[in-house]
Design a protein around this nucleic acid. Structure first.
Length: 286
DNA sequence: ACTATATCCTGTATGC
DNA sequence: TGCATACAGGATATAG
């Protein structure tokens, strides 16, 4: 579920609340949430106890908690994962899967995940960037992103442009919501072959993506329901700024045509049939 | 290399 | 009210 703006909102919240704390105890309430940890749930709990958190980093939709040695705890929220920072006495939210208590502190950190597609693991030697996510490309808000180089890479792909935007090994952080919003801003159909787009058009598309991600981040992300909230349980309010996502049958903010929903890649794509018509361009023959 | 599909899960909304 | 079905913001493995 959570895409870059939501994950970054959570990262900033965690940085404010848990950096400098030393983990006292870890309780794993559901083994599935630590299935990617190389060891049993009990190993995970033992390995994390006593670690001091010195920073929270993010690449795309992945987070890692940097410890004061060379290790880190890698986290992915999947479709429904949340981190909540609560007072120790507060009742845990439903679907709390893992809990952390801290030394000399009244707060607890909770990993909550209804669908359990997300998970936590200890990344040995991962403090500067876990090797487990070496295949994840830089995201569009990171310093290291190079739009021209990225556009060239995208322009070499024969897939539909939305498929490429969602490929985390090409560019990370974009999911279904922000892919649809980006394509609407760029007036592109989701199936338009990437290699049929001129380089300048791809750079424009990436700039639109940066704009959507920045605006959504400034709004604290998109909360359709209680499945995405910040670390204190607060909702983001970018939903009111969405042009197409989740707006089937409603008027396009630009031309008033009714937004359509179509199945694509086993999920839904939303587009304006007038602003984002079917493409005719084909990729050059190889 | 690209594409389509299935899979991992739970909860909610919808229609009959 | 009960039941069946569809759908949900993601990532990965596999088969073709």
């Amino acid at each position: 579920m959570p895409e870059l703006p939501e994950v970054e909102t959570i990262r900033a919240g965690l940085e404010r609340l848990v950096v400098g704390k030393r983990i006292a105890e870890v309780s794993v309430h559901h083994p599935r949430s630590v299935r990617r940890h190389p060891g049993t749930p009990a190993d995970f709990a033992r390995a994390l106890a006593g670690r001091t958190i010195v920073g929270i980093s993010r690449r795309g939709k992945y987070l890692w908690f940097a410890f004061d040695d060379s290790d880190a705890m890698l986290a992915h929220l999947g479709m429904s994962g949340q981190f909540r920072v609560d007072c120790a006495g507060e009742a845990p939210p439903p679907n709390t899967r893992v809990e952390f208590s801290f030394e000399l502190s009244d707060i607890v950190l909770r990993f909550v995940d209804q669908r359990m597609f997300g998970g936590l693991s200890l990344s040995a030697g991962g403090v500067l960037g876990p090797p487990e996510i070496a295949h994840i490309a830089p995201d569009l808000l990171s310093q290291e992103v190079d739009l021209d180089g990225l556009a060239a890479k995208i322009g070499g792909k024969r897939s539909g442009i939305k498929r490429v935007l969602l490929d985390q090994s090409v560019v990370s952080g974009i999911g279904n919501i922000y892919a649809d919003e980006t394509l609407w801003r760029a007036r592109l159909h989701y199936g338009h072959p990437a290699c049929a787009l001129p380089a300048g058009r791809i750079v424009e598309l990436l700039e639109h993506a940066q704009g959507v991600l920045r605006e959504a981040l400034a709004a604290g992300g998109t909360s359709f329901d209680a499945l995405y909230v910040g670390v204190a349980g607060e909702a983001g309010y970018f939903e009111r700024s969405l042009a197409v996502y989740g707006r089937e049958g409603l008027p396009c903010p630009r031309c008033a045509a009714a937004i359509v929903r179509e199945p694509f890649m086993g999920r839904s794509s939303f587009r304006c049939p007038k602003c984002q018509p079917h493409y005719r361009q084909q990729c050059p023959a190889q």
